[in-house]
C-alpha cells in the first residue's frame, strides 16, 4: 500500500492504494469518480478512456502508480464550469448515446481525436479512430455524426454523416 498523488480534473488528489491498483480502480474506488467505466478485461472496449497529460489512454491498462504525478482528466472534468464541452453537447443533440455505458469513453476518445485531427476529420477517419471503443447500442451511426458535428463546431471539419 502506497500513497499515490496526481492531479485529477484540476484538483490535487492522493489516496492509498496497492501497487497493483489500476488507474480506473483508483478513480472509481478511491476518488468516487464512477463516470469512468470498465466494460472488458482485455483492454479493448474503451469504456475506461481518460486523458493522462492530455492524451487519451485506457485507464484499465495503466497502473495508478504509473499515473502518479500526472494530470488526469475524466468525463467528470470535461464540462468546464458547468458548461457542456462541445463534444458532450454534440452527443446529446445527435442522439450519440443510448444506454450511456460506453459514452464516457467515447466522449474522451472523441475529444482526443478532434484535438489530433482538427479540420481534417472525415467519416472514414472517425470510424477508423473508434477502433478502441465499442458500443452495442447505437450502431455507431449517431456517434460518428456527433463527433463530426463537434469537430465542425470546434473548428471546421467536413460535413457530418446523414
Amino acid at each position: 500500500m502506497a500513497s499515490i498523488s496526481m492531479t485529477v480534473n484540476g484538483r490535487e488528489v492522493s489516496g492509498d492504494a496497492e501497487d497493483r491498483t489500476l488507474l480506473v480502480e483508483f478513480l472509481r474506488n478511491n476518488l468516487g469518480l464512477t463516470g469512468t467505466h470498465v466494460g472488458c478485461d482485455t483492454s479493448q472496449c474503451g469504456a475506461c478512456v481518460v486523458h493522462v497529460d492530455g492524451e487519451a489512454v485506457k485507464s484499465c491498462t495503466m497502473l495508478a502508480a504509473q499515473a502518479a504525478g500526472s494530470a488526469v482528466t475524466t468525463i467528470e472534468g470535461l464540462a468546464a464550469g458547468g458548461e457542456l464541452h462541445p463534444v458532450q453537447k454534440a452527443f446529446h443533440e445527435n442522439h450519440g448515446l443510448q444506454c450511456g455505458f460506453c459514452t464516457p469513453g467515447m466522449i474522451m476518445a472523441a475529444t482526443d481525436m478532434i484535438r489530433r485531427h482538427g479540420a481534417s476529420l472525415d467519416e472514414k477517419t472517425v470510424r477508423e479512430e473508434l477502433e478502441g471503443n465499442i458500443c452495442r447500442c447505437t450502431g455507431y451511426h449517431n456517434i460518428v455524426k456527433s463527433i463530426l458535428a463537434a469537430a465542425n463546431e470546434m473548428g471546421g471539419a467536413q460535413q457530418a454523416a446523414e
Partner: peptide, 19 residues
C-alpha cells in the same frame, strides 16, 4: 427532440449497479 436523460450520461453522473 434530444433526450432528457442524456445529461447524466454525458457528464459521468449515470449510476449503474457497480457504482
Amino acid at each position: 427532440i434530444a433526450r432528457k436523460e442524456d445529461k447524466r450520461f454525458i457528464t459521468g453522473k449515470g449510476r449503474y449497479t457497480d457504482d
